[in-house]
């Protein structure tokens, strides 16, 4: 066969495969947008569910997810950023840092339902927090820790070595150097990772199944020791556990969840793009 023809055929096959990956994404988005848009109105977003979830809004689930995400960030961002600082600025290439990196890789690969089991074992039962926003937040926080560490590491590593040398050579201490000459320039990258973490924490269901999520709780949580509804679990419940939920409510819930996660990811993509363009070194 002529090599040029061979090349044409091969490239076409590769192109078709790429379409197979990307087009379903569009189809999923279109289906959910078209069928869910009808449900979107202020009442749906800001009212309690009524009549066994077959009517009314999904406000407690939205609010619950916001609480959980904030709680997870509160825990994971400081820990993740400090951990990245340890890896990039303090650790030498030793056995210890190798084990730390391997642990992070493994944390990233632990199945989300295993995080759920862990959260149940340690936070709900052992520490006695019960099924609560606190337990759920901590579980989600641990789950997004690898995301935050990895992107913070990349951000710190992208800060040129010369900034550190200059700062140290002016007599600044190591921590001052990190605080004033490294962290500010790594901030956009850390922020990007944080936003990705938000998207991930908002969308996961398995880790909150046994640690916080309430099946049907048409009132708002009063403290971090209360249970709460959450968007992804709510979608699971109304699409598999309860018969007779109107289609618009299901698609509407899926759309709200999807929008929340996609907006976060788009923000991260845009931020990263802007950062790369503006970078002066």
């Amino acid at each position: 066969m002529n090599v040029q023809v061979e090349q044409k055929i091969a490239f076409s096959i590769l192109f078709l495969c790429t379409l197979l990956v990307v087009v379903p994404v569009l189809i999923i988005l279109v289906i959910i947008f078209v069928k869910g848009a009808g449900a979107l109105n202020l009442g749906f977003l800001f009212e309690m569910p009524t009549n066994g979830m077959t009517e009314g809004g999904i406000f407690p689930a939205i609010l619950g997810t916001l609480y959980l995400v904030l709680g997870a960030l509160f825990f994971a961002v400081p820990l993740g950023v400090l951990s990245a600082i340890y890896l990039v600025e303090y650790s030498q290439e030793t056995v210890l840092s190798r084990i730390v990196k391997l642990a992070i890789v493994n944390l990233a690969g632990v199945p989300s339902v295993v995080y759920g089991l862990f959260g149940l074992g340690i936070f709900v039962l052992f520490l006695g927090f019960g099924a609560s926003i606190l337990s759920g937040s901590l579980t989600l926080g641990i789950m997004i820790l690898p995301v935050i560490i990895t992107s913070s590491r990349e951000a710190l590593e992208s800060v040129p070595q010369s900034f550190r040398i200059v700062s140290l050579s002016l007599g600044a201490s190591k921590w001052q150097t990190i605080r004033h000459s490294v962290l500010p320039h790594a901030l956009p990258g850390i922020l990007t990772g944080t936003i990705l973490g938000i998207g991930r924490a908002a969308g996961e269901t398995a880790p909150i199944l046994f640690t916080v999520a309430a099946f049907y709780l048409p009132k708002l949580p009063q403290s971090m020791f209360d249970q709460t509804m959450a968007l992804p679990y709510h979608l699971y419940v109304i699409s598999t556990q309860v018969p007779g939920i109107p289609e618009t409510i299901r698609y509407g819930t899926a759309l709200v969840l999807l929008l929340l996660v996609l907006i976060m990811n788009l923000a991260a993509i845009i931020l990263r793009y802007q950062f790369r363009r503006r970078k002066k070194w």
Binding site: I28, I32, R250
Partner: peptide, 23 residues
């Protein structure tokens, strides 16, 4: 394309499950 694939990765699994179930 890369942005598209990143978006695919971002879709929560419960949403993908929902779509798989109904379509």
């Amino acid at each position: 394309l890369k942005a598209g694939i990143e978006l695919l990765a971002a879709i929560p699994s419960v949403v993908i499950g929902f779509i798989g179930m109904v379509t």
